[in-house]
Amino acid sequence: MADIINFTIDGKECVAEKGTLILQAVQENDIYIPTLCNYKGVKPQGSCRICTVRANDRLTTACTTPVGDGMEIENDTSEINDFRKSVIELLFVEGNHFCPACEMSGECELQALAYRFQMMVPRFTYQFPKREIDARHPKILKDQNRCIRCKRCIRTIKDEKGRSVFAFFGRGKNIEVNVDPVLGSKLTDKLAAKAVEVCPVGSILPREKGFRTPIGQRKFDHEPIGSEYKH
């Protein structure tokens, strides 16, 4: 039998198998932790920091840290939630997110997080960066205004030889996630659809198919993101 360890989440006693990541251990207890860069079935990278918890008094990312025996985890506290909200706000001011004109509005995870954490206005100054829309590819549009550089596309969308269709270009605050022109031109319908699905925001869009779902029927119109968890 696997080693079972004990830990607490906001004071509640829980158990998990040794080696389980905090994110998974918390989810198994039907408790929600927000995530953005993390994607099911892909190795966690811990880059967006939205899943931050306080574990034994240290801030750490739940998607990359294994739970330890006797660990005390703070998750749903005003301090942690405000920290998460500040991450969401930073992402909003860092790009150009005009939701009313966005094809993914109502289905976007960043927007849904802003709703869940009740972001009325970001506390930071809007940057209004100059970003382009890349419309050169036959199946998808790549809107750089909305890319949050989570690398979900880079890590999941590969051709039959295992080559990534998306890749980083540039450095620092000018870094962009671009589409490989050759692989992009050969993208199958299936892979294009998967790229759209994998992107948490409206940065990868299917061509000729905007605003498909009427307002009121979209994913996050009625239920907050994470509603599948009880707490």
Partner: peptide, 17 residues
């Protein structure tokens, strides 16, 4: 501030970059 334009510039702010 009521509405996206008051809060974040909105559609007119498309010219900002």
């Amino acid at each position: 501030s009521f509405g996206e334009c008051a809060i974040m510039g909105g559609l007119p702010a498309f010219r900002n970059p």
